[in-house]
Amino acid sequence: MAAAGFGRRFVLALLLLPAFRPGAASAIEVDRERVWALLAKPGHVALMRHADAPGTGDPAGFRIGDCATQRNLGERGREQARRLGEEFRRRAIPVSLVLTSQWCRARDTAALMALGPIEDEPTALNSFFGRPGEREAATAALRQRLAALPADAGLVLMVTHQVNITALTGVFPASGEMVVLKRDASGAVVTVGRLPAP
């Protein structure tokens, strides 16, 4: 009897699942298009976690400016960055400013996207992974940098790290994911969407 009840519940659950028909746009695809459309409008910032870099953190004794001492992009990450840059160009989305952490995996992500000249933004975008005492100061610097952007500026791309993005937005982004922000009328920054890595 219990097995029969389970069978009925299982069939009912299947019937209640959304229908996935060939050619039908999923909710994720619809939202992705909405977020891409936002990126084409002035006043938005794409806060991006660097593309895929196998491992966690950095080796002991790593040095900024010496990529051989750091955790770097893998082939998957390099391909993610190239594909994302191609998608920006395919959609003709102009990028007015590219800012990046000084870590090689962030700078290489920005360079492979090839969307414009890259500027280091160490105070706001450098990682504080393993140094939680730096979180408040880094997040305050990021807020100040965002507040200094003109409200009607073209798209600003900031390539940084998971800890920086999570501290500001509460979002835990995957490698290569973008969290899209916009300043509201009061100057506060609000999260308006997410774009997963291609």
Rank of each mutant, 00 (worst) to 15 (best):
R89M: 06
S96Y: 02
R82D: 11
L99R: 08
V98Y: 00
G85S: 03
Q80Y: 02
V98R: 01
Q70D: 07
S96R: 02
R90A: 05
T69I: 11
L84M: 12
R82I: 13
G77Q: 10
E79D: 04
R83H: 09
L84A: 09
I93E: 00
V95S: 00
L97I: 12
T69M: 12
R90S: 05
R91S: 01
F88P: 01
P94R: 04
F88Q: 01
E75W: 13
L73A: 12
Q80A: 07
S101E: 07
E79Y: 03
R71S: 06
V98H: 01
R83T: 12
C104E: 06
I93P: 01
E79K: 03
W103G: 02
Q70V: 13
A68Y: 08
A81W: 04
R76T: 14
R78G: 13
P94F: 02
G85P: 01
G77A: 14
I93C: 01
S96M: 00
G77L: 03
R91F: 03
N72K: 13
A92H: 09
T69F: 06
Q102L: 15
A81G: 09
R82A: 12
R76I: 14
T100K: 02
R91G: 00
R78L: 05
G77K: 10
V95N: 01
C67S: 15
L73W: 14
R82E: 10
E75Q: 08
S96K: 00
I93D: 03
E75C: 05
Q70N: 10
V95F: 00
I93Y: 01
A92I: 02
A68I: 11
R83Y: 07
W103E: 03
C67G: 13
Q80W: 06
L73M: 15
T69A: 08
E86I: 11
V98A: 01
W103T: 04
R91Y: 03
L99Y: 07
V95H: 00
G74K: 14
Q80V: 08
Q80D: 07
F88K: 01
